[in-house]
Design a protein around this nucleic acid. Structure first.
Lengths: 210, 210
DNA sequence: GTCTATAACCTGATAGAC
DNA sequence: GTCTATCAGGTTATAGAC
């Protein structure tokens, strides 16, 4: 009950007590994530923010610049959470896998549209993203070294791809699962909760293989 | 050499000897897949097909209807290839996994943009796709029964999700990998070729686990 | 069937009043 | 800072000539 009241209070703040600039930013985030850059009209954002269309350009100059701002933040969410874990030299391989699947699934449960949003926008406009993603830092991470010590025969890229795939792919399939009516939102969250424990165990099984 | 000549001959047919209707269809497929529905202009399609804009509406009435046509075909490619394998009662669990990763990776190598295209469009317009995907047929497949016999403790959904994730996810990450300059097209194909053998072995390891 | 020309509408952005 | 009104350009779709 207290939690629910807290949530409602938070919602109210979002709707009312925010600066105009912040209201536009949050509205833009919501609409861009839902429709993608191309299908979003600046009018949609203005309406969602409860302000006039002209104010959007007053604060952010253009649709493009507003989108850039949102995208930088989202790229940070999507890639920023991985690298620190993969490069933490105090964690064992098993601890890294547990932390990564755990914290990443938590983050994605809060923001389930994030992967497909980012991936779609990169797909439809790759130029915008050249040299913007810290993927090399992920490939050359401390985890890669640990993996090489344990299983020099297994290419780290396959391992990383599998770890990410098991964690992220269900969220990418989420719209399909719902559109097909396979199961409910609640069941989905529960299944992902299970995966937090299962993924590290599956990945360990891959490491022990053969 | 003969193969190359054959390919070039095919290309020429595509460019010249096709009916107007077919030329538009193929152009639409190309442009929709590259830019997505919202960012595609009918003018782009007309230009790509080498015809006039009016002809597009003459043959297909509207952008929307043309898109529907393409999408039905693509949904067939994406989902249609899975169900027959998963429901083939003459294949063992291991054979199913081998065939699925093998034939699916082959298909995706020919059409690497397919998953992200479909997933993006569903995400940005879920209503269009309600009750259009044979996902229930996949969940209730013969593979599910075999899996239940072997490992009643492992939910088939987790298993299927992992199998699909390992197979499809790399293609979803492909634009990221290229935009980040991690490695070349040729290396990507080679790595996916490796995975055709590796995925069934990994999945078997998951089945033996614990 | 295929084209040109144009209608009808929509979208991002700005000018100018308050 | 915020609004209304409007511009300039682009988009889908169609009318009508050939």
């Amino acid at each position: 009950m207290a939690y629910l009241a807290d949530k409602m209070a938070k919602k109210k703040i979002v709707e009312a007590d925010l600066s105009t600039e912040e209201k536009i930013k949050q509205a833009a985030q919501k609409v861009f994530m839902k429709k993608g850059y191309a299908a979003t009209r600046t009018r949609d954002i203005a309406e969602e923010a409860g302000i006039n269309l002209a104010l959007l350009n007053y604060y952010f100059r253009s649709k493009e610049k507003l989108f850039e701002l949102i995208m930088i933040e989202k790229l940070g969410n999507f890639f920023g959470a991985i690298a620190p874990i993969l490069n933490n030299e105090n964690l064992s391989l098993e601890q890294k896998m547990t932390q990564l699947s755990g914290s990443y699934i938590d983050m994605l449960n809060e923001n389930p549209e994030l992967p497909l949003f980012i991936l779609s926008e990169i797909r439809y406009n790759p130029d915008r993203f050249a040299n913007r993603m810290p993927l090399q830092k992920i490939v050359e991470s401390h985890l890669t070294k640990q993996l090489h010590d344990k299983r020099p025969d297994l290419h780290p890229l396959h391992f990383l791809m599998n770890l990410l795939a098991m964690t992220v792919f269900p969220f990418i399939m989420k719209p399909v699962i719902h559109a097909a009516g396979v199961f409910s939102e609640k069941t989905f969250v529960a299944k992902m909760e299970e995966r937090k424990q299962l993924i590290p165990r599956w990945m360990s099984a891959l490491l022990r293989m053969k």
